[in-house]
C-alpha cells in the first residue's frame, strides 16, 4: 500500500543561512510530486531532511501517521536516488541492487533464493536484466540511473526520493528516461518525490508540483494550476517567460501611463504589476493601446515568430510571440493589446 508523506513546518539552517524556513506539505499516497526551484532554494535540503540525511531544527516528517523521528535509518525505508547515483563502484550491478537486502539484520534478511528473485525482477523492471555482472564503471549514464532506481526500490521503500534524477544526463536520454519513469511510476504506484530545477521536467512528470524559493513553498498545485494560476510573481516568472508592466488600479481597471490596459475587476485600488506571457499579446494598429512603440527585433523559430517591442515608458522592451501572418516588420510602429495577464499587487 502506498504511503502518504507529510512534512510539517520544517526549518533548517546552515550556519547563519536559513535553507528551509518552515516548509509544510503532504504528498498523497501513490502521488508523483516534483520539488521545483532554482538552485539554493532548499529543495535538495528538503529531500535530504525527509530522508533523515539532514538534521532539522524544527518540524517533523510523517509517513502516514508515523513520525520519522521515531524510526531508525533502516526502518525509515527511504528509497533515495542520489543526483550522481552514488553507485557502489566496487560492487557489481547485481550486488548494488542486492545491497539493501543483504544489509538487513539476519532475522529479516531474505534467503539467497529470495534475494536472487527480487534482484532479477528489479533488474528486469529497469530493463537491465542482462547487465547484473557489470560494474558501474561499465555502464552508460542512463543505465546507472536505472541501477540506482532499482537499488532504491529493492528495500521496498515507503516513499521514493529522487534528487535531480535526470540532471547528469544528456538531452535525448533525459527525454526517454522521463517518459519511462512516468510509466514506471504508473506501474508500481509508489509515493514519489523528486527534485528538479527544470520546470518542463516537473510539469511533464508530476501529478503536483511544489515550487520552492528561499526555503519556503511558494505554491503547491497541479502543473496546470500553477501555470494557469500562479500564486506569486516568483512562480509566474519561474514557470516561463513573462513581461512585467507596472500598472495603477482604480475602480476595477488597470491603467498604464494613464490609459486603461487591462480589466481588474475585484481588485482594490493601488499599484500592481501585470505579468504577461509573450504569446498573450496581440498586435494592433498604433495608438489603439498605450503599449505602443517600435519593433526593434524580429526572428523566427519554427512556426513562431518573436519580436521585441520597445515602448517609450517601459524600461525593457516587451517580448511578443505569435503565429499569425504577416510577421511584424523591423522598425514598424505598432501597438500591443493584452489578451490575458496575471495581476500581482505590489506591496
Amino acid at each position: 500500500m502506498p504511503v502518504s508523506l507529510t512534512v510539517e513546518n520544517i526549518e533548517k539552517k546552515f550556519g547563519q543561512f536559513p535553507a528551509l524556513r518552515g516548509v509544510s506539505m503532504t504528498v498523497a499516497p501513490g502521488e508523483l510530486m516534483a520539488l521545483l526551484g532554482p538552485s539554493g532554494s532548499g529543495k535538495t535540503t528538503l529531500l535530504r531532511a525527509i530522508a533523515g540525511l539532514e538534521q532539522v531544527e524544527k518540524g517533523r516528517v510523517l509517513f502516514d501517521d508515523i513520525d520519522a523521528e521515531s524510526l531508525s535509518f533502516r526502518d525509515r525505508r527511504i528509497g533515495f536516488v542520489f543526483q550522481h547515483y552514488a553507485l557502489f563502484r566496487h560492487l557489481s550491478v547485481y550486488e548494488n541492487v542486492a545491497f539493501g537486502l543483504r544489509a538487513r539484520p539476519r532475522r529479516e534478511r531474505p534467503n539467497e533464493g529470495e534475494i536472487h528473485k527480487r534482484v532479477n525482477n528489479l533488474l528486469d523492471l529497469v530493463q537491465l536484466g542482462e547487465l547484473g555482472a557489470r560494474f558501474p564503471s561499465q555502464l552508460s549514464g542512463g543505465q546507472r540511473q536505472r541501477v540506482a532506481l532499482a537499488r532504491a526500490l529493492a528495500i521496498e521503500p515507503r516513499i521514493l526520493l529522487l534528487d535531480e534524477p535526470f540532471g547528469a544526463l544528456d538531452a535525448q536520454v533525459r527525454k526517454d528516461l522521463r517518459q519511462w519513469l512516468r510509466e514506471l511510476h504508473t506501474r508500481i504506484g509508489q509515493t514519489t518525490l523528486f527534485v528538479t530545477h527544470d520546470q518542463a521536467e516537473a510539469t511533464e512528470l508530476a501529478d503536483r508540483v511544489a515550487i520552492l524559493n528561499h526555503g519556503i513553498i511558494e505554491q503547491l498545485a497541479s502543473p496546470h494550476e500553477i501555470y494557469e494560476h500562479p500564486q506569486t510573481p516568483f512562480v509566474c516568472k519561474f514557470l516561463g517567460e513573462t513581461n512585467v508592466i507596472p500598472v495603477e488600479l482604480k475602480g476595477g481597471q488597470a491603467y498604464f501611463d494613464g490609459y486603461r490596459v487591462y480589466d481588474a475587476t475585484n481588485y482594490a485600488d493601488g499599484t500592481a504589476d501585470l505579468y504577461i506571457r509573450p504569446y498573450l499579446f496581440k498586435l494592433a494598429q498604433p495608438g489603439s493601446s498605450p503599449l505602443s512603440g517600435i519593433i526593434t527585433h524580429v526572428h523566427q523559430t519554427g512556426p513562431y515568430w518573436r519580436a521585441e517591442l520597445t515602448v517609450g515608458n517601459l524600461a525593457k522592451p516587451l517580448t511578443i510571440e505569435g503565429l499569425t501572418r504577416p510577421l511584424p516588420i523591423l522598425g514598424e510602429h505598432v501597438a500591443a493589446t493584452i489578451e490575458s495577464a496575471h495581476l500581482f499587487k505590489t506591496p
Binding site: F80, A86, F99
Partner: peptide, 15 residues
C-alpha cells in the same frame, strides 16, 4: 554520498 546511500539502504554504520 556512497556512505549516505548505504545508510538509506538500511546498512548500519558498521556495515
Amino acid at each position: 554520498t556512497d556512505e549516505e546511500a548505504a545508510l538509506t539502504l538500511g546498512a548500519s554504520p558498521w556495515q
